[in-house]
């Protein structure tokens, strides 16, 4: 969902640019808390993987395709603040080097694929993690649902921006219906890729999955007490 230059007028692009700068600024502060020695190389790899995966458009029918957006995936793997940094780097490189997504539209793209997709993907994931049984096996499905929801919501936010600053006189209802409809289908692909990748990383190195850490901390505590006593200490 890379917005090219020209879809949105200048004031809207400036406004999303301001939102993007503010969001990235907050992310730089927030990521400090997320990034320990383990997570720093992961951020580079996750950003690189999202870039690579965004090259692979999958068909969603009727002459349309979609690709991973990666907001939910990055948020679950490295944390939401670091995920915003990942997506911002990906979008900058795509816009500047690959001519994918516009230049005046970079703020819009960071807002949609960085801020909105990460916030929604992470928000849904955290909600599910709290509701589902607190087992590491729930992390990948929760991430997949977060990914599923993040794509049509980002599409809806684009429609909102288009309503405010769209340059072409087009029936908004048609745009909203088509955007959410197609991006719900693309969201299924997003969910599948996100679920598979998170499950793979969990299987290999669960400690490298940011979203799984609260659940692993429980397990670690269980082991320590079990070596002394066979009872488990309930964790608040």
């Amino acid at each position: 969902m890379h917005v090219p230059d020209g879809f949105l007028d200048a004031p809207t692009s400036v406004a999303t640019g301001v939102v993007a700068v503010a969001g990235v600024g907050l992310a730089l502060r927030g990521a400090r808390r997320e990034l320990d020695d383990r997570a720093a190389p992961m951020v580079g790899l996750v950003a690189a993987f999202v870039f690579a995966a965004q090259m692979v458009n999958f068909p969603v029918g009727a002459g349309t395709s979609g690709h991973l957006m990666g907001g939910a995936l990055a948020a679950v793997l490295v944390g939401p603040w670091s995920a915003i940094l990942c997506l911002s780097v990906v979008l900058l490189v795509q816009g500047l080097l690959m001519a994918d997504g516009g230049i005046t539209a970079i703020g819009t793209n960071i807002t949609l694929l960085g801020l909105v997709a990460v916030a929604v993907g992470w928000g849904v994931f955290v909600l599910l993690r709290a509701v589902l049984p607190s087992r590491p096996s729930m992390v990948a499905p929760a991430a997949a649902v977060g990914a599923l929801v993040s794509v049509p919501v980002a599409a809806l936010v684009f429609t909102g921006l288009f309503a405010v600053g769209g340059t072409a006189p087009v029936a908004l209802g048609d745009v909203a219906t088509a955007m959410v409809g197609w991006h719900s289908l693309i969201g299924i692909g997003e969910a599948v890729v996100t679920g598979l990748v998170v499950a793979s990383v969990l299987a290999a190195r669960p400690d490298l999955v940011h979203g799984a850490r609260p659940l692993l901390a429980d397990a670690r505590l269980e082991i320590r007490t079990a070596s002394g006593r066979p009872t488990t200490t309930p964790q608040a």
């Binding site: 969902m1 458009n57 395709s65």
Partner: peptide, 13 residues
Amino acid sequence: FASSHPDGLEHVA
């Protein structure tokens, strides 16, 4: 092997 069809946004546009 990526699909060369337009993506969701381009298609809707």
